[in-house]
Amino acid sequence: MKGLLKGLGVTFKSMTAKKVTTSYPDVPFVMPDRFRGIQHFEPDKCIVCNQCARVCPTECITLTGKANPDPEKKGKVIDTYDINFEICILCDLCTEVCPTEAIVMTNNFELASYSRDELFKDREWLDNNNRNVRQDNNNIGAPAAAKGGAK
């Protein structure tokens, strides 16, 4: 009997303790800055080095580039950039190797959709996904003084 009563004591004590339940989705969930949510892509910064596609463990990034339309500048410009969110595991390796921080994670995690077609995010969508962009990227691929050259 004694053990049961001790247990009940704990139960009653925690009845008066502070509640920790949050009322999501009425109250939006604020994720810490480093949270790995869906990516945000800035086409202007991309130099088509292909590192993100190469490092992706599930090979969900496909990209094509075209020659820079401006005849003065050398290099390539991004043409299409697709991430297949059926298999993206949000592991963050693509942002880690990007030398220009063209692809970064945001803190958005609400990705549910009613059809699988919406899970193929293209360049447009990723460019427009610029709410809650992550600040602290710890981008090992782009040390502070990088001028954008691929390693």
Binding site: I47, V48, C49, N50, A53, T62, L63, T64, G65, K74, G75, K76, G149, A150
Partner: peptide, 10 residues
């Protein structure tokens, strides 16, 4: 060897 773009060369 990759089908997608070769990187920058200058």
């Amino acid at each position: 060897a990759e089908a997608s773009a070769a990187p920058v060369v200058d």
